[in-house]
């Protein structure tokens, strides 16, 4: 099976009290292993909600979302946490590195969550930092790193536990053009391989060329996949 993510008729509505907002409206999407899928569209079109459901940190109201053949909605909360900890890596728009941890410690967090001992996790983290070109900065704290370097640390953190799906939310929006390109090259080179899928949410048109496929969203629908 080479399908990583399968979404069928996904619906999600937010009830703000005064009004109901439909963020996802019967979304159908398939993402294959070894594929870099980009979700694009205007602000508020439902991209973030869709990756939140795909990553298992938000439950849909209706429809099916399977990751590697597993339906997260029917999983018990403990199983879902374990699944998320093992199978999914995250890269965030604001990097979301822990400021009091150095680069190696930040990268080792997913391993520690998965029960790996701290010293083993740290060694592995330094190896992965080497692969993203930060072997000499592993002791640096986030505040001592540039935006591009911080995003590379975040990518290392998303890769360190060898997840099968990497979810990236606007990974280049906080970076200048050159740094954004470097980060995308890195994601393509290091993160993507045949046993792993990448979903990237972006409205940065400069990086669309890196995608294998692009799903365009608007008003809670997928309007086009190309």
């Amino acid at each position: 099976m080479n399908i990583a993510v399968r979404c069928e008729n996904l619906t999600k509505t937010y009830d703000t009290g005064e009004q109901k907002v439909t963020a996802l409206n019967a979304v159908n999407l398939t993402i294959n292993l070894g594929e870099l899928m980009m979700l694009v569209g205007p602000s508020g079109c439902g991209k973030t909600t869709l990756i939140s459901v795909i990553a298992g940190i938000l439950d849909q109201d209706e429809g099916l979302c399977e990751l590697f053949g597993e339906n997260l909605l029917t999983m018990k909360s403990k199983e879902k946490l374990r699944f998320r900890a093992q199978q999914i890596g995250f890269v965030f728009q604001a990097f979301n590195l822990l400021p009091s941890l150095n680069a190696a410690e930040n990268v080792s967090v997913p391993l520690i969550i998965n029960g790996v001992k701290r010293d083993v996790a740290k060694r592995k983290a330094i190896e992965v930092l080497e692969s993203v070109g930060l072997e000499d900065r592993w002791k640096s704290f986030p505040a001592q790193l540039s935006g591009g370097q911080q995003q590379r640390v975040a990518i290392a953190r998303a890769l360190v536990h060898s997840p099968r799906l990497i979810v990236c939310d606007e990974p280049t929006s906080a970076l200048d053009h050159a740094s954004g390109h470097n980060v995308m090259n890195l994601l393509k080179e290091v993160a993507l391989h045949k046993d792993r899928a990448l979903v990237i949410v972006s409205h940065d048109a400069r990086i669309f060329s890196f995608a294998d496929r692009i799903a365009e969203m608007d008003d809670g629908h997928i309007v086009n996949v190309r």
């Binding site: 990553a55 940190i57 403990k78 946490l81 374990r82 998320r84 900890a85 093992q86 999914i88 995250f90 965030f92 979301n96 822990l98 967090v109 997913p110 969550i113 998965n114």
Partner: peptide, 11 residues
Amino acid sequence: QFGVLKAMGAS
């Protein structure tokens, strides 16, 4: 930061 840990699978 707690949200990040939670998203990454910390219970």
